[in-house]
Amino acid sequence: MRDKTRLFARIVGERCQGHARCVAIAPELFELDELGNAHARLHGLVPKGLEAKAWLAKANCPELALDILEQ
């Protein structure tokens, strides 16, 4: 990964069914609303050092509702 690459995590709202795996794995990056559906914190920005957690959260989402964009 290039040094200046930044990761953005995005929950595709209509796909999320509230399995809550992303929040269990990366509470720094995701939070749940009152119905238990997930949303990205920090407008999706993945702070440095948390990239691996973001990828792990994506790999553990059963609904494939988590996208990660590299910019």
């Binding site: 509230g18 809550a20 929040v23 269990a24 749940l32 009152e34 119905l35 238990g36």
Partner: peptide, 9 residues
């Protein structure tokens, strides 16, 4: 929907 809030983590 009415049940979801009872079962969040």
């Amino acid at each position: 929907k009415l049940l979801l809030p009872l079962f969040t983590p």
